[in-house]
């Protein structure tokens, strides 16, 4: 027995350390552990040894074999890890290529519709229902029931599109969402806490702040004991809920035939937060809409006892709200459905 097993093991380890490939590794394994290998020869020569040495040497050979096996396994794992690493490294890509080439799979909801949803949600949170009415209305619903008799000078406030149905100027495209108030009140269910959003039409030449087709949201509360103070409270609650805690409201006298007292409501300028800028003409306030206590003549038109019930109404432009919130310089872009605009918001 002239093998030094320690050297055999050491040689095997040395040989292993140069292997980088699984095929070579398996060849080497064969060389190291086959019958013809030094270890194999040593094992087969055991039979020639005297019995007392056989056990001792045999145990040493087995130990050497285990050591080589474990070195092989270790090397195999090393190669496998390295190979996997290399393979993945070769797969490398600049993932910002994906970023730069990606487009959102999802489309966008129209900014006016979204604004309408948000406004509805604020009022729903305040216990209001959302009611809708037709866009084609009669003179009665759009004007007369709202205390605006035919040829009333106040009709000049609403340039109207008339339709070729019925007698001349009896059927029209509603100029505001207020006729829906009449319909809600006519339904006879009291009290009323409702907002009424929808599309309206005015025969105005479009400019950066007006469109002939636009959207309004109207609010109506009719209950026992409703006061002007409640109107002011509701407007203020809505303003801070929708525009943010720093934005407040104020009411100033105005005139609408269907409310008395009437007011216009202004909110803190959202551009300068009230410190004064060009948008608000350096007043710190911008006008948002009109409001007031429901006129007794309107209650009479729908058969509600104005001695018992009082109420308030308010209304403002949804498009204007969106314009203010998203700082859209020219409203006309809202109707163009231009991808370059829609994809921004």
């Amino acid at each position: 027995m002239d093998y030094n097993l320690e050297i055999v093991v050491q040689d095997a380890k040395d040989a292993l350390s140069t292997i980088d490939d699984l095929e070579e590794l398996s060849r080497l394994r064969n060389n190291l552990l086959s019958k013809k290998s030094q270890l194999g020869t040593a094992r087969s020569s055991l039979a020639t040894l005297p019995l007392d040495q056989r056990r001792e040497i045999g145990a040493k050979i087995e130990l050497a074999r285990k050591e080589i096996e474990s070195a092989l396994a270790e090397r195999r794992q090393l190669i496998e890890v390295r190979t996997r690493k290399e393979k993945l490294a070769a797969d490398e890509i600049d993932i910002t290529e994906w970023l730069e080439s990606s487009t959102p799979a999802r489309g966008h909801q129209h900014i006016v519709q979204r604004t309408r949803d948000e406004l509805e949600d604020v009022f729903v949170g305040m216990g209001f229902s959302v009611n809708e009415g037709p866009e084609v209305e009669t003179d009665w619903y759009n004007f007369e029931a709202l205390n605006i008799p035919p040829a009333h000078p106040a009709r000049g406030m609403w340039d109207t599109f008339y339709l070729d149905l019925g007698e001349p100027e009896t059927v029209l495209l509603r100029t505001h969402t207020s006729p829906t108030q009449i319909r809600v009140m006519e339904s006879g269910e009291l009290p009323i806490y409702a907002v009424m959003p929808g599309r309206c039409y005015r025969r105005d030449t479009p400019d950066s702040r007006h469109l002939p087709i636009f959207h309004q949201i109207e609010g109506l509360v009719v209950d026992i004991g409703i006061s002007f103070a409640n109107l002011a409270g509701t407007i203020e609650d809505f303003t801070t809920a929708y525009f943010g805690a720093g934005i407040h409201s104020r009411l100033r006298p105005s005139y609408f035939p269907f409310t008395e007292p009437s007011a216009e409501f202004e909110i803190t300028c959202t551009i300068c937060a009230g410190s004064g800028c060009r948008t608000c003409s350096h007043t710190g306030w911008i006008e948002l809409g009109g409001c007031g206590m429901v006129h007794p003549a309107v209650f009479e038109a729908v058969g509600i006892d104005s001695k018992r019930w009082t109420g308030f109404a308010f209304g403002f432009g949804i498009d204007r709200c969106a314009q203010m919130r998203y700082q859209i310089p020219d409203m006309r872009v809202l109707m163009e459905n231009d991808y370059r605009f829609m994809k921004q918001l």
Binding site: M126, G127, F128, A229, N230, G233, T234
Partner: peptide, 13 residues
């Protein structure tokens, strides 16, 4: 005129 909050008797939805 001091603002006062009215209270809707309904659940808004």
């Amino acid at each position: 005129i001091k603002p006062a909050r009215p209270r809707s008797p309904r659940v808004g939805m």
